[in-house]
Design a binder for these strands. Structure first.
Lengths: 236, 236
DNA sequence: GGAGTCGCTGAGAAGAACCTGAGAGTAGCC
DNA sequence: GGCTACTCTCAGGTTCTTCTCAGCGACTCC
């Protein structure tokens, strides 16, 4: 668990969200992904926390009880901090202000999101905005390659087309290579947090993935009956 | 996004604008485009900032609470600096002074503008006014050529007529060749900041562009379903 | 070796994403 | 004032994607 493959370990995040359930979900999983997480549940608390803690990135719900997310950012930037932001917005948010969010290297994720989605965006924004490029956008495992920016996947140099969900699942497996992942765990990370189906969807997508990326020897995606799945080289 | 293709990296800009929203919009995106940006929210502050910081170019709203933009320029030039300017004006500004701006190497952009438009003008003015020719006015990608000054576009040497929006979109794609651009990102950069339509307009214009510039092999404009669009050579 | 459980996969329905033709409205031009 | 070119919206069609269900095979445990 400690050596989470994610290379952004140690980046300081400030998560701002008023719904306690979502806040708990976010802070627990981001912490687990290796980030140094602090939290705030209101806009004004967020502005203060940003001053004190100087986070490397802010995850910010645009709908807050006191100030809205855009006000928070303005106040934070007036006080000199130039911190990148990943916004959380409602799906239908046709709100005027949502336009323009991608301008300063920032990004946004619409609720309900998946944790995989959110952490991928966080990694991408950190990659773009921090001078020293820390985490490469390309993941590799054995002869598998996955480019997070272009969404391209190769097996043994051969280009493979994946659907968005297949892509997210493979990325999650690769980020956690050699670690056994239960179906519940995969469901929690790769699917939106409001997904109400059952485990079988994971089996289905594992099946799709195998057909597309795991037809050649050696097989990389292994089933551990009653336990879960793992991406690893055989002979282990 | 890190290596923003724009070659004007490092030029020092002073942005003068009293509307905090627009100022934030401008400074965030110009900074992200690689400029070294400082800001002022009033005419007098601008004059001082120009003395201190000696910017290579000033982006200046003509409507300011204290002095108007032309006064600001006069004061700045009395103190000896001959800094080029890109003015921001209201759409209906038929003001005599605005015309004739292009004579001195300066230029203007009418509000509401698109960021593509503004950064293109900034690049053009810097190109004209700085001795060392830095950024060429002609962009090329594969057998595509686009001349920023004459607004001419060629595919395989063949002249192609584009509408203004088609031209801006293609320029944005070319400046970001091989980088995946989401529809939101394209909307934010290519369309005016007050545009209130939805993503479909991007699909429409991509369709127009394809019909005009991408009918021959190899295809250069690619759709990444669920992700965005990218300009690139196949076989990658 | 039989019953029950677990996992795999094909089929298909529902929905989402994307493309494009048609047309209304508008701005610019002669 | 009329013409043209352009922008933007809408809706229908197409393709791709997601998710469910059910049947079958494989494994486990008694």
């Amino acid at each position: 668990m400690t050596g989470m493959a994610a290379p952004q370990t140690e980046a300081r995040l400030l998560v701002v969200e008023d719904d306690p359930n979502i806040l708990e979900l976010l802070s627990a999983s981001l912490r687990f992904a290796g980030f140094d997480v602090s939290t705030a549940t209101s806009g004004s608390a967020a502005v203060n926390a940003a001053k004190d803690r100087r986070p490397d990135l802010v995850v910010l719900d645009v709908m807050l009880p006191d100030l809205d997310g855009f006000e928070v950012i303005r106040l934070m930037r007036e006080s000199g901090t130039r911190t990148p932001v990943v916004f959380l917005t409602a799906r239908d948010a046709t709100d005027d202000k949502i336009r323009g969010l991608t301008l300063g290297g920032d990004d946004y994720v619409t609720k309900p999101f998946s944790l995989e989605e959110l952490t991928a965006r966080i990694r991408a924004v950190l990659r773009r905005t921090t001078a020293g490029e820390q985490s490469p956008s390309r993941l590799t495992f054995a002869d598998l390659e996955l480019d997070e920016e272009t969404h391209e996947v190769y097996r043994a140099g051969e280009r493979i087309q994946l659907s968005p969900t297949e892509f997210k699942l493979l990325r999650y497996l690769m980020l956690n290579a050699n670690r056994v992942l239960s179906k519940a765990q995969i469901l929690d990370h790769v699917w939106n947090y409001d997904f109400r189906g059952d485990d079988n969807i994971v089996e289905s997508y594992i099946s799709y993935l195998r057909r597309k990326v795991d037809t050649t020897q050696p097989r990389l995606i292994h089933t551990l009956r009653g336990v879960g799945y793992v991406l690893r080289k055989p002979a282990t």
